[in-house]
């Protein structure tokens, strides 16, 4: 008999990758990436950016878009099932809440893998004539994955605790906007004490600072260890939050 976790994960990833709605989301994300890429060559200001800076910018955008996709998928995972009336049958099935959450997490992971693969041609297109392209591809996987999946797990937890998709989605998006603010504010954030503290504990900042450090400054993994810890703590905390929330699920 197939493991229920794999069954749920397969159903979740199938809905994303094989349904018309899922592919349309991926199309929308690819259009955002394309517009950004075209701006990079057509805009005078952007086209004069150093190649490494452009790769860093694309990596940050991929992380933000992946997180956005994770927020939408995570929110839909439980609250969406509840609104569609399919949560009861799922809970009555011979699976534990933990298995349901792990299956949903599997779907999230599949969504991010597709998103990551979709971003690679863009990273190659902007970075192949510059420095540290291989590092960009590896570190995008290494640091963006816990950040993106963390957002997804956090929203799975949220959607288990609140009644409506809208509430969960809004909370998820506000959290994403808060944590992803360094993408817009850049280094100016680190000029104040609060900004430095926020930067030190924010997983999104950790990923962005790593991309900067590796791609632009050519620094090694050893320099990134504390940042990797921040992103992994985020991943584990949100995963525990999702598991715990599923046990306290509101029908």
């Amino acid at each position: 008999m197939t493991n229920p976790i794999i069954l749920i994960a397969r159903k979740e990833s199938g809905e994303l990758l094989l349904s018309g709605r899922g592919i349309t989301w991926l199309l929308a994300l690819s259009i955002v990436m394309s517009v950004l890429s075209l701006l990079l060559v057509s805009n005078t200001e952007l086209s004069l950016l150093d190649n490494a800076s452009v790769v860093y910018m694309v990596m940050g955008t991929v992380t933000a878009l992946g997180s956005l996709l994770a927020v939408v998928l995570g929110t839909d995972a439980i609250a969406g099932e509840r609104e569609r009336g399919s949560l009861w049958p799922l809970l009555l099935a011979p699976v534990t809440p933990s298995q349901i959450v792990l299956g949903k997490m599997g779907g999230q992971t599949a969504g991010w893998i597709v998103m990551y693969l979709l971003s690679l041609p863009y990273v190659w297109a902007v970075g192949s004539s510059g420095q540290n392209l291989a590092q960009a591809v590896i570190y995008l996987a290494l640091f963006a994955t816990p950040v993106v999946l963390g957002f997804g797990f956090f929203c799975i937890g949220l959607s288990a605790r609140v009644h409506h998709v809208r509430t969960a989605l809004l909370t998820g998006l506000i959290t994403l906007m808060l944590l992803a603010s360094p993408l817009l504010l850049g280094p100016s954030l680190r000029q104040s004490g609060i900004g430095k503290l926020f930067d030190a504990v924010n997983p999104f900042s950790a990923a962005l600072n790593t991309f900067d450090s590796v791609v632009i400054d050519s620094q090694t993994l050893a320099v990134q260890s504390s940042r990797l810890v921040v992103t992994l703590v985020w991943l584990v905390t949100t995963a525990l939050f999702a598991m715990r929330s599923m046990r306290k699920i509101k029908i």
Partner: peptide, 28 residues
């Protein structure tokens, strides 16, 4: 200064969404 080369961007920027669009149409 090494800057982004438009020769690589254009095929990717138009190619990836086009492929997904073809996939959507084909599915339909």
């Amino acid at each position: 200064m090494p800057v982004v080369e438009s020769g690589r961007i254009l095929p990717v920027a138009f190619g990836v969404p086009s492929l997904l669009l073809i996939l959507i149409i084909w599915r339909r």
